[in-house]
Nucleic acid binder design. Structure first.
Lengths: 158, 158
DNA sequence: ACTGTTAATGGGAATGGTTCCCATTAACAG
DNA sequence: CTGTTAATGGGAACCATTCCCATTAACAGT
């Protein structure tokens, strides 16, 4: 198990126990893959990575586990417009410097995590959330902010 | 053809001609459906609406036309997490009071368009866009901001 | 208005991501 | 170590979307 993941691992293991879920090989492997990358992996990519370590695992388990992790708030699920879901582990949004949003190239599907301007953003989003909660009597759980456009490379090719 | 849609219709017709596309019955019907609603219709819902007016139309035409409209910037495509794409006609984003974002209930899939706090948002997003464009050499075309949570009704049922 | 060119259509088949089903396996409490 | 049962894996099913191709209709030129 990767060293850098200890914190997340322990956190997740704790949360698993807490909710009465079993910590299986597959689940550990999936968590491990997600902990090690800053990318936005698709279910299939996760499946392939997991396979390298634990070759008997199946696709349905990957999907089931991801759904569980999303429900537990351990993982976030995104759509960037290429028809498949993408997954990213939660690294403690809002409370440290890992909070980020996405910049998506509509041509090559490249996704950049950016953390610039995040402080102003968080401030505004928090205000907006508060206002919206009140006005529409909504319990807001999360937000998604994505910018779409053409990346450096694709911009030039046009 | 609905009265209230004249402006959008003319705009779109103009843009169609301009690009050398034919203005067919199906395309008119689809534009008409999208012009008349403030909802976020799925392809199937649009197909059903179009069918009422023009029963010989087919599903592939709906998808093809929607793709074209999205490419022309006449229609926006969204994902709210229920596995199907949703479409909304452009009513002149940024330049008038129609700019809005979405509030999505993760339980019942209800989507609320909100326009509150939009001025501050637009201001911040514009600044962020400018900064990101520069830093990452990205040509930003659009952004998506969505809040997810539980709506009034679903909140209580829990 | 008529006609020819060809963009656009419609229907069904194919695709591909995701979910479902169920017999088998393995986590973990006692 | 053992029994209970949650979790798994593999394949079939599902469903939104895309593809294919013979047919139709938009519209430019006459």
């Amino acid at each position: 198990m990767a060293r850098g993941c200890r914190r997340e691992q322990n956190l997740c293991h704790g949360r698993f126990k807490e909710y009465g879920y079993r910590l299986t090989m597959s689940r550990q492997a999936i968590l491990d893959v997600l902990s090690k990358t800053k990318d936005h992996l698709s279910a299939e990519e996760i499946y392939h990575e997991v396979h390298k370590v634990y070759p008997s695992s199946g696709m349905s388990t990957v999907y089931r586990t991801l759904e569980l992790l999303v429900d537990l708030g351990i993982v976030h699920k995104f759509h960037f417009g290429d028809g498949r879901s993408r997954y990213e582990i939660d690294r403690g949004e809002e409370h440290n410097d890992h909070h980020h949003h996405h910049l998506v190239c509509t041509k090559c599907q490249r996704v950049i995590n950016y953390t610039d301007f995040i402080d102003d953003e968080i401030e505004l989003l928090r205000r907006t959330e508060k206002g919206l909660s009140k006005k529409y009597n909504f319990k807001i759980v999360k937000h998604i902010l994505q910018f779409y456009g053409l990346c450096e490379r694709c911009k030039e090719k046009q």
